[in-house]
Design a protein around this nucleic acid. Sequence first.
DNA 1: AATTCGGGGGT
DNA 2: ACCCCAGAATT
Length: 354
Amino acid sequence: MIFSKKLISWYLQNKRSMPWRETKNPYHIWLSEIILQQTRVAQGLPYYMSFTTTFPTVFDLANASEEEVLKLWQGLGYYSRARNLHATAKYVANDLKGIFPATYKDLLQLKGVGDYTASAIASICYNEAVPVVDGNVYRVLSRYFGIDTPINSTKGISEFKKLAITLMDHDEPAEYNQAIMEFGALQCKPKSPYCIVCPLQDSCEALKKGNVPSLPVKLKKLKVKKRYFNYLVFSSSDQETILQQRVGNGIWKGLYEFPLIEGEVVGVDEIVLNDIFQKIVNTKEYEIIPYKEELIVHKLSHQHLYTKFYIVKLNDSLNGSEDQKKVNFKDIHSYPVPILLSNFIEAFFKKDLV
DNA sequence: AATTCGGGGGT
DNA sequence: ACCCCAGAATT
């Protein structure tokens, strides 16, 4: 039996049950694919459920505000996915009458849809014979064919794509693409793959050579940067605080946070602090209390954030502004915030230290 | 071609 | 600690 048929056969016996496998509706498939980019099924599943429930059609998603979309996306990370998702929904709803593009080539033009996602949607929804090459596929192919070209090099990307095209099952693109990914996720896992019971064991090059654990090869990892975040959590006499939206490029674009003083080292600069106070606070009668003495270390892929929250208690009210919004404590949960802030907010308001 | 975008889970 | 996850966009 040839490679693709073996995979499909394995898939039919071992595939997991997932809600997006019960439909070929391009809106739902597109949603699932964007959500699952660099995201495990277990983590993405609840988000898929909430998005399809909250926004049953692409028109519902298009008519939402970006803030609503970000709020529903909160906690999933890579927030540009949410912004691109919303932009594409508006485009499809308003310019394409709600009809998604139906070919790989046209799907590729959508914001947030790259080679992988265009292939996935085109094959699953429209049976177009275009191969998906995700992390699972890189692993399966590099092992089965014993290829040690780095999968994140330009050469590797084109090499594996070419190979994937030749292996593609042209009769059942939808089944084949999902089969090879599911096979990589469940059988040909990164660590401790089940080679002993593998249906491809007879012809797996890496298994023959004994270098399964060293494949696939991936180029160097980047160094993590350390950043020092000091958040000012204002607490006014009338139960209000200040939130501001992150703009420009960088992490958490579009999400909200407390006024931030970022420094080169731990601690707040007095001059900067006074500067901020003059804008936000009417009175100079305030009290700054570190929420905790210890730093909270929040780890992102390539940044470690050493964070401290300062509670700033006032016997007066606050000055809101265009970019520094006054927010009542009871409304704070409606704003999209990074998990780092979400964790703090939950702990702080639960303890009722306000 | 290299870097930058999160957060969670596994080892 | 380090790696990986149904990758894409920007530099």
